[in-house]
């Protein structure tokens, strides 16, 4: 392998790419501390919009609802996605595998308006046919989120399982462990960073979803994106800038934390710790 190096040309592209990706968000963060009600005119430093945000019951309630749905949806999706990932990566051919694979891949690219509409029509038709679900709201949003998040978790888990050396599990079985025992005490611990990554991805996807939730929600259940969208439709607002800043900072902190955890784990692996000890 030849040494990798940065050329002036590649440095320029990195600069252009990252400027494009980060300048818009940087401007947003900067102007969230703007005194003026006019979002784009700088009138001095102030944290008044953060205070206003804190006073906004509607936004706080919506944020709490979104967090609750995201926690529950990410957990259920991680469970379902792990099972699906094991089935796809380990069980070889089984009847319906093609359909199963298609139902895992399609949600990754399906336009949200189609997913949202189809789920709403399902809920309405089921309510007519079997009387369930009685109301649309947090529960129906949760079901919708679990469904599309499962696909993402499955791809991550199946991918990680595909990279694993099957010799590890075989060795455990040679030493007398049952396949289940070998999976639980050898493979699952190695898989745990992928499960965490899947859970985090599902959590952010659920927290972020506007279109699907708008279709399947009912009266009284407004998630944060739904509230933000109805405000943003009317134009830019300093309060939304403050909210955006909080979201951006939270995600950045979470990412740095995840990176630090991954780095620590890699260091421990290099130090020769057994995977099962993690």
């Amino acid at each position: 392998m030849t040494a990798r190096r940065s050329t002036p040309w590649s440095r320029m592209w990195l600069a252009i790419g990252f400027a494009f990706l980060y300048l818009p968000m940087l401007v947003l963060v900067l102007y969230s501390f703007n005194e003026s009600r006019l979002v784009t005119v700088w009138a001095g430093f102030s944290t008044r919009w953060y205070a206003a945000l804190w006073q906004d019951r509607q936004i706080i309630d919506a944020a709490l609802l979104s967090l609750r749905i995201a926690l529950l949806a990410a957990s259920a999706a991680t469970l379902l996605g792990t099972l699906a990932g094991i089935a796809l990566a380990r069980f070889g051919r089984f009847p319906g595998r093609g359909l199963f694979g298609a139902m895992i891949t399609a949600p990754l690219v399906m336009p949200e308006v189609i997913t949202g509409l189809s789920l709403l029509l399902l809920f309405v038709s089921l309510a007519q046919l079997v009387g369930w679900p009685e109301h649309r709201g947090a529960l129906t949003i949760w079901i919708a989120h679990v469904t599309f998040c499962t696909a993402y978790v499955t791809v991550i888990v199946a991918g990680r399982l595909g990279e694993l050396d099957p010799a590890l599990e075989e060795a455990a079985q040679d030493l007398g462990a049952t396949p289940l025992r070998a999976f639980l005490s050898v493979t699952l611990p190695i898989l745990s960073p992928a499960l965490l990554a899947g859970w985090l991805l599902a959590f952010t996807l659920s927290l972020d979803d506007l279109v699907i939730a708008s279709f399947v929600t009912g009266p009284g259940a407004s998630t944060l994106p739904i509230v933000v969208f109805s405000s943003v439709r009317l134009g830019v607002s300093p309060k939304i800038n403050a909210l955006a800043t909080i979201l951006i900072v939270a995600v950045t902190l979470a990412a740095v934390l995840a990176l630090w955890l991954a780095g620590r784990q890699a260091a421990r692996r290099r130090a020769g710790a057994m995977p099962a000890a993690m």
Partner: peptide
């Protein structure tokens, strides 16, 4: 980070 926020920016 939120898709909606990135469009809003």
């Amino acid at each position: 980070t939120s898709f909606l926020i990135r469009v809003y920016a």
